[in-house]
């Protein structure tokens, strides 16, 4: 579990402004995301190079996701969604580097991310739709007698959103790294048969790469789903 510990970079106690390994790996996340989107696309060629088409594919992928899931008028929030996607994706991927620190495996980080999404989407819903935003909880297609009960359920599930949103990401990241750690511990314990857990860790690592990307995708697509609810609460 020491891989998840927050340590001050230059020694001393951890207070709110201390540069820690959190600072380092978040900064590396920004650097990696900027490297892909700015240095990758710096050629601005009509026929893209490999790095440029990777940047353009990322752009197009997130753009299409926002447009398809959240609707056409959600495109003005595309930079926000894209920032969240890039942060989560690169934090997950950089966390897979051996000896790295995974910022997204910390519930504090993902909770702030999820709460930011939750609060801004809720505020947006009230600003854009006014009291009509509450129609999200009043299921007009259900029989009238059932509606209060459904409203309670909807309300609970609405407030459960940031919880599941944040714990899913942190839990998936933490689980993967913890399992890898356990298997690596087996390798030193088994002696001559060390290659069995090493092979298992290798396979697990491939799975974790997939999980890292899928969790970033899922986090972003759920953000888009919440955004759609804020923009079109009647649906």
């Amino acid at each position: 579990m020491d891989q998840f510990e927050v340590k001050a970079l230059f020694g001393g106690d951890v207070s709110w402004y201390t540069p820690t390994n959190v600072t380092l790996w978040m900064a590396l996340t920004v650097v990696a995301a900027s490297a892909l989107m700015i240095f990758g696309a710096r050629g601005r060629a009509i026929i893209p190079t490999r790095a440029q088409s990777a940047a353009e594919m990322t752009y197009g992928f997130v753009y299409k996701m926002v447009e398809d899931v959240a609707g056409h008028d959600a495109v003005r929030f595309f930079p926000h969604v894209f920032t969240v996607f890039m942060f989560v994706l690169f934090a997950n991927l950089l966390g897979l580097i051996p000896f790295a620190f995974t910022t997204t495996s910390h519930i504090a980080v993902t909770a702030v991310l999820a709460l930011t999404v939750f609060l801004s989407v809720t505020a947006l819903g009230f600003i854009l739709n006014g009291p009509k935003f509450l129609g999200l909880f009043w299921v007009s297609s259900a029989p009238l007698a059932l509606r209060p009960a459904l409203a309670v359920i909807e309300l609970i599930s609405y407030f459960a959103r940031p919880v599941s949103h944040s714990i899913r990401l942190a839990g998936a990241m933490m689980a993967g790294h913890a399992v890898a750690k356990v298997f690596a511990g087996f390798a030193s314990a088994l002696g001559a048969a060390f290659f069995v857990p090493v092979l298992a860790v290798t396979a697990l690592y491939a799975l974790e790469l997939l999980v890292a990307v899928i969790q970033a995708y899922v986090f972003t697509i759920l953000t888009c789903v919440y955004l759609r609810d804020a923009l079109h609460p009647s649906h």
Binding site: M65, D68, V69, S164, I167, R168, G171, A172, A175, I214, Q215, Y217, V218, I221, L222, V225
Partner: peptide, 16 residues
């Protein structure tokens, strides 16, 4: 997209 969202929801409960 719906497949991945559904899998994420189901997987989240295992992660819980």
């Amino acid at each position: 997209a719906m497949l991945f969202v559904g899998i994420a929801f189901a997987e989240a409960l295992g992660i819980f």
